[in-house]
Design a protein around this nucleic acid. Sequence first.
DNA 1: ATGAAAGCGCTAACAG
DNA 2: CTGTTAGCGCTTTCAT
Lengths: 352, 352
Amino acid sequence: MSARTTLADVAAAAGVSVSTASLAFSGAGPISPATRTKVLEAAGTLGYQGPNPLGRQLRSGRAGIVGVVVGDSLRRSFRDPVSIQVLDGLATSIESLGLGLLLVRGSDEPGAEELNPLVATAAMDVAVLLWGATTDSPVLAALRARGVPIVVVEGRVGEGDALIRIQDRTGMRLIGEHLLALGHRRIATVTLPFDRDGREGPADPARLTHMRYEIARRRLAGLRDAGVEPTVVYETPASLVELGTAAGRALLSSPDRPTAIVAQSDLLASGVLLAARELGLSVPGDVSIAGFDGLDLPWLHPDVLTSVHQPLQTKGELIGRAVADLLAGKKPRTRTLDVSLVVGTTTGPAPV
Amino acid sequence: MSARTTLADVAAAAGVSVSTASLAFSGAGPISPATRTKVLEAAGTLGYQGPNPLGRQLRSGRAGIVGVVVGDSLRRSFRDPVSIQVLDGLATSIESLGLGLLLVRGSDEPGAEELNPLVATAAMDVAVLLWGATTDSPVLAALRARGVPIVVVEGRVGEGDALIRIQDRTGMRLIGEHLLALGHRRIATVTLPFDRDGREGPADPARLTHMRYEIARRRLAGLRDAGVEPTVVYETPASLVELGTAAGRALLSSPDRPTAIVAQSDLLASGVLLAARELGLSVPGDVSIAGFDGLDLPWLHPDVLTSVHQPLQTKGELIGRAVADLLAGKKPRTRTLDVSLVVGTTTGPAPV
DNA sequence: ATGAAAGCGCTAACAG
DNA sequence: CTGTTAGCGCTTTCAT
């Protein structure tokens, strides 16, 4: 019933000492089966549900909790299937470590933004920064000041933080090469945000020098690695289908229409595809479209997006492993996951 | 720095007692501005980041954590925009209470299933069961045994649990009446799961008596309230677009094709709509389609689903309020939210 | 306004 | 194998 019953009560009822009773529950020490049963029986009678986690935590100095810091709004983060899949893998692996997952909203604005107090006060043994950590992030600063070990996903890290990321630059290079081989020369790209300021539209040269987020920067660099210089770099403020559609409309209705559009995410690419359909363009007859992430998007039927696949579930598991390593006192490492280009039905030879 | 520095160290450095130092941080007691600054300065010098949450928690008997128990897989739960929006609202309101949100995977199988140990051991002051709680759920049993106050969302509750839900029976009645008024008589329905056994396809009379989940049962009952007896009750194992498409194909390619299909969720309805398009049927010319939830589904463009809108964000906030109430020792209540029918472009007069 | 003392519930040395 | 003894770091009466 009420959580009033303590280990001491159980011990008293069983006629043993508190430490013995503790051993009966934890099993972390020698104890005779007889006393063990005796204690467990007493517990049953008293309705004792096992050691109070708070006492255990204080004593052991560990909260048994991994703080996962997501973007400024859960809704925004979770609208993205990419985040969800990573989070799912992470949750599974964290759970197998016997740890809980504390979800923390963490705005990433540098400067005078108010910081979610939980970042500074919630009990956590390790923190995972799920996306877009920048070196000047106040979240990062607060966690570091607390001495909490940190795992960064797809961002820039300081000394002492673990980093998990994918080969996105290579992935984008593969897409670029694929399109060049198909004869495309007028290639535009739709990018993820450069910064948190919500800009949307073609980026001018000045804007291109202000790319705070690693992901957009690296994926753009990958395209250039292939020798592609995009005719237009169209920035979006988030990875959303409707923003891709807006970008697609703009790019595809311009007089010097590109023959191929590469989006930095599958969601954006889906939007571009919808825009192409809306404008009555044939894909890939009139325009080729490629994305990034390798999501399963049945509603695009009958089209299947050409995309760079990343192992999202594995990524989550790897984050879990990094958490375990940090907890075990091992040195933080950087791990980079491979990606692969999977050609679908949305890319083909450039129109003549 | 390292988390070694304690309040005692700070107190010593500042030349005050521990209790005074505590007051300097909590502000919960009389303290002179001078000593306060002195303590804070000492803390600054020592790199002390404020009271250790673990000590505070043990002393106060509160973990400052709300456990949110979602379905068996985070991926599955979070693929559903409905869950996400509720979770977003909940996270916001929980955060404003200064509480953390612990995500707990909780399989809901009765019987010999292994229970996620976190349900029994993780520190939490209140638990929220996000979906589909059934009275025989082992999760519910474990939490109740621990004496953790419980908020159930859209499920059945026992005595002493708070319940948050929507008027879904009324909502479905509205849809039924809407379709009847349009002249429809052959109406089929695509439902959410009856149970966790993953069944898919038309439900026979026997199956209809085994509806463990409240949502499917209530929404079906609502349709009947309107006087609609569905020609087919097509059950799906989850609220997913592709399952709706499968259901749509089956229903729409049968010889006695219905003139209207009501799905118990917008995702299912979207799938049905895609199936109709695929089969070259005009919507609503040949078939009317309605959903439930009121999601924003831009990729259905140019169609806009006729749907019953539920206030998802508000629901999340209401859950947060229920949490606060339980924490304050108030009596658990049931709160039912209103819904409204919003007619889109996918329903029209029955074909003659 | 400040300090002393008493635990919150538990685990981990260390004796026995 | 079991009991004794110390705390983990903090907050909170209760004196002063």
